[in-house]
Design a protein around this nucleic acid. Structure first.
Length: 828
RNA sequence: GGGGUUGUGGCGGAAUGGCAGACGCAGCAGACUCAAAAUCUGCCGACCAUAAAUCGUGUGGGUUCAAGUCCCACCAGCCCCACCA
């Protein structure tokens, strides 16, 4: 037998013909839902990242299948998105055509991987059968008040006259034409994920997720406990009032209400509506100019504490509610509209950014906190401890008491309260693009915003659309799409011209898989409760904050709508690492450092490639590509091939390595090796540590080779050990293992065999070598009975002549024995 | 700027706080061979002629009987930051 791609093809055909991996919804085995993050069909070929993620997660799920789980393992495509549209703009090939073609190619390649996907459950998000339910759910969210419209900035290229994605903005310029990108405000749809901020936070500790991912989510939600305080506004010498004649209040969130008496100015985000309202006629021109400047700066740069602060006076003043001080209101870009209330109280004496700004613009600086009474610390003094000064009735209070006292006082005036703020912002889902789910809303001049009636769904994405960028959403230019009748009044109306963020598609696909052909419902509740949540979810760590949070939000919203009965979509999560180019850089076509899996598959077969991916890297860390180690697997597979011939020649009668154990010492050694390999490999595969699992298999192969060399080797014992090796290797080399199984006359299929169990008693050795240390330094090694207790070990060690020599007359202070490992003697 | 993360032989990488370098790749030596390939055996962190000893997990501190592992500071690299997916 000689393993090659032909063997891959032989078994792929047989698996397909016999529907070996067909999922049985009615099985009474325990359900296990194993899911990899689905892929975006951008290029025509599967890249190395897909292979790394999918092939090895498939190995994991193959083991689970052999362990007796009813494994649900579907695959599909995240098929809407910007790249297909960009490709279309460049080449004229319609996104639907290129996407469908890419999906076809990728499906074929995924089959060539030899994975256990059941293609009956496939889905593609760009099909009306799928996106209909995006629209349906959008309307449900709208009905619940969880979808709403507000103004938000977009990146705008004034030259191309179009909206740009962040990735299309390179150093503040349009990637196509190089013009300077500005921020433009548009009315857009948001999902109110902030309603779930607290629950999203509360459920994190119970998730079986990587700690770092939990940390990222916790920080992303960013709960902070503080206070909201308010100031009235004076504009042109008069109190500013709203349309109803009520005084306008500037609401400010702060974690440092204790410093409120030191507030000497207030800052508003320049792009906010509030800023426009506050700006006086005299200052209008300067503010407008400043807004033009800031519209070019990214949020990340704006929040940087090292960047030089800039700002401009709005002409209005805020009135401090406690001391009546009239403080100027400035517009400055270190405050961001979408963040908190978009207004900041500035206390230059106790905040670095405020201090820098105040010094630059000559604003007043008043110390209100001292580290201890009478100590004039250098300003800004930002430590979170101290006592108050220059704060009238609050002088002398500890700053923590002062927060309570000041907020309590403000509260009696209706000007402040304790408040929890979250860094998390609502999810902006409108995209001014073609290749996505149309937003199922109608804008009627009479009735306002009206949802499309459920029976009219899906709102189909039209095929013939001009999606070249020229200033409008592509759908807005498609007359047959955009013009419609209002479902309420029947009058002429227009559809929403935007499409949804593709993260909407990927926030609930994990549920649709389980009921992917349901034409009547988003999914059947009983079915989803039975099949979901996902038991093991595997994908890139780059999704730690957004995709994974959005999917959790959708699950909770669906639960509250009664669509399903659990709280979290993904019980257990693993992130595979990133395989970089051999230059240590991220792989990209432009850098020319990509690796094509197909080249290796053709040359070595998919099993060699998969096993190498498992062996050559720490799965969770990834690392630079290097195929030198591939030889390790080539040699490993060849050795097994040769052994197969030897073993197949022996009688097929089943024997256990343990049977021979009583007979010979060599058989006993082999039996130990078999059981150790099974135990360790099983545990390692379970925790996605494939490199050490395969290392244990190599050790077992070495042990089998050694046994084979012994003169008294029993062919049946050899065969039994070899079969165990093939079984535990089978998840990584499925075609190869299937071929061996057939060669051995063991029938079809090896994947219907049970995963081998190990025998703990075979792992108990009579003696064990331990290290003897004095004060932590190794002196010598010694064999002891493996069941010896500390007293017995102490006696054995003390009786050894080497011990006296090493002790050199010192006294024994303490004797520590770590079972089966070492003895450490503390000596003085 | 904020958040996350990594740092171990020539290389990929192992190591529940317990003998650092498992398992391999590459390399070196030997066996087999007319020869080569393949295969098999042995060696393979530094220092050192060799052995012993000593040193050794980015740097500097600390905790501990014991630190690659835990804590603090620093250095270097990588990833993410809300319109890429």
């Amino acid at each position: 037998m000689r393993y090659s791609i032909d063997i891959d093809r032989k078994w792929q055909k047989k698996w397909a013909d016999t529907e070996l991996y067909k999922f049985d919804e009615n099985s009474d085995k325990k359900k296990l839902y194993c899911l990899e993050m689905f892929s975006y069909p951008s290029g025509a070929n599967l890249h190395l990242g897909h292979w790394y993620n999918y092939s090895l997660t498939d190995s994991w799920s193959r083991m689970k299948r052999m362990q007796g789980f009813n494994v649900f393992h579907p695959m599909g495509f995240d098929a809407f998105g910007l790249p297909a549209e960009n490709y279309a703009i460049k080449t004229g090939i319609h996104p639907k055509d290129s996407t469908m073609k890419n999906i076809e190619t990728m499906e074929k390649q995924l089959r060539e991987m030899g994975a256990t996907f059941d293609w009956n459950y496939e889905l593609a998000t760009c099909t009306p059968e799928y996106y209909k339910w995006n629209q349906w759910f959008f309307i449900k969210l709208f009905e619940k008040g969880l979808a709403y419209r507000k103004n938000a900035p977009v990146n705008w290229c004034p030259s191309c006259n179009t909206v740009l994605a962040n990735e299309q903005v390179v150093d503040g310029a349009c990637e196509r034409c190089g013009s300077e990108v500005i921020h433009k405000h548009m009315t857009q749809w948001f999902f109110k994920i902030t309603d779930y901020a607290q629950e999203l936070l509360d459920c994190i500790p119970d998730l079986d997720w990587p700690e770092k991912t939990k940390k990222i989510q916790t920080n992303w939600i960013g709960r902070s406990e503080g206070s909201q305080v308010a100031l009235y506004v004076e504009k042109n010498g008069e109190e500013l009032k709203d349309e109803d004649g009520n005084p306008v209040k500037l609401e400010v969130f702060t974690t440092r209400a204790d410093t409120f008496m030191g507030c000497t100015y207030v800052v508003v985000a320049p792009e906010s509506e509030l800023c426009d309202k506050l700006t006086t006629d005299e200052c209008r021109e300067a503010v407008e100019e400043y807004k033009r400047q800031t519209s070019k700066v990214t949020d990340i740069d704006r929040m940087s504490t090292t960047r030089e602060k800039t700002g401009v006076f709005t002409g209005s003043y805020a009135i401090h509610p406690l001391n009546g001080r009239k403080v100027p209101i400035w517009a400055a870009d270190y405050v961001i509209a979408g963040y908190g209330t978009g207004v900041v109280m500035a206390v230059p004496s106790h905040d670095e950014r405020d201090f820098e700004f105040a010094k630059k613009y000559g604003l007043e600086i008043i110390r209100v906190v001292q580290s201890a009474p009478g100590v004039d610390d250098e300003l800004p003094y930002c430590e979170k401890s101290g006592v108050l000064v220059n704060s009238g009735e609050f002088d002398g209070l500890d700053m923590h008491e002062a927060i309570d006292a000041i907020v309590a006082k403000l509260n009696t005036m209706g000007m402040g309260e304790k408040k929890v703020n979250y860094r998390l912002r609502d999810w902006l889902i409108s995209r001014q693009r073609y290749w996505g789910t149309p937003i199922p809303m109608i804008h009627c001049p009479e009735c306002g915003v009206v949802p499309v009636p459920e029976e009219d769904l899906p709102v189909l994405l039209p095929y013939d659309v001009e999606f070249k960028p020229d200033g409008e959403s592509p759908l807005a230019k498609c007359d047959s799409f955009i013009n419609c009748k209002c479902p309420k009044c029947g009058g002429d109306a227009k559809r929403d011209p935007d499409t949804m963020d593709t993260f909407v598609d990927s926030s609930w696909y994990q549920f649709r898989y389980a009921d992917n052909k349901n034409a009547d419902k988003i999914f059947d509740k009983d079915k989803i409760n039975k099949m979901c949540p996902v038991d093991k979810y595997v994908g890139g760590a780059e999704h730690a904050s957004m995709h994974l949070l959005y999917a959790r939000f959708f699950t909770k919203a669906m639960r509250d709508m009664g669509l399903l009965d659990f709280d979290e979509p993904f019980k257990s999560l693993v992130h595979q690492g990133v395989i970089l180019g051999s230059d240590g850089q991220k792989m990209s076509k432009s850098k020319g450092n990509t690796v094509m899996p197909d080249d290796y598959i053709i040359k070595y077969g998919s099993d060699v490639f998969r096993t190498y991916l498992g062996f050559g890297f720490s799965y969770i860390d990834g690392g630079p590509w290097n195929d030198e180690g591939l030889q390790a697997i080539v040699k490993f597979i060849r050795r097994i091939e040769r052994l197969t011939e030897d073993v197949a020649a022996a009688a097929p009668a089943k024997a256990d390595p343990a049977d021979g154990a009583a007979a010979t010492a060599s058989a006993k050694d082999l039996n130990y090796a078999v059981n150790y390999a099974i135990k360790a490999a099983t545990a390692d595969i379970d925790r996605f540590q494939f490199n050490t699992a395969i290392a244990r298999m190599m050790e077992l192969l070495n042990a089998i080779g050694k046994y084979q060399q012994t003169p008294d080797a029993d062919p049946q014992v050899l065969r039994a050990a070899f079969e165990k090796l093939v079984l535990i290797l089978s998840p990584f080399a499925p075609h190869f293992a299937e071929e061996i199984w057939e060669t051995l006359g063991n029938g079809y299929s090896i994947f219907n065999e049970e995963w081998p169990e190990f025998d703990e008693s075979a792992l108990v050795l009579d003696t064990v070598e331990i290290a003897v240390q004095i004060n932590g330094k190794i002196q010598f090694k010694i064999n002891i009975p493996s069941d010896a207790d500390q007293a017995a070990v102490e006696e054995i060690v003390k009786a050894d002549a080497r011990f006296d020599e090493a002790l050199a007359g010192r006294n024994i202070v303490k004797f520590i024995y770590v079972k089966g490992r070492l003895a450490n003697i503390v000596a003085k």
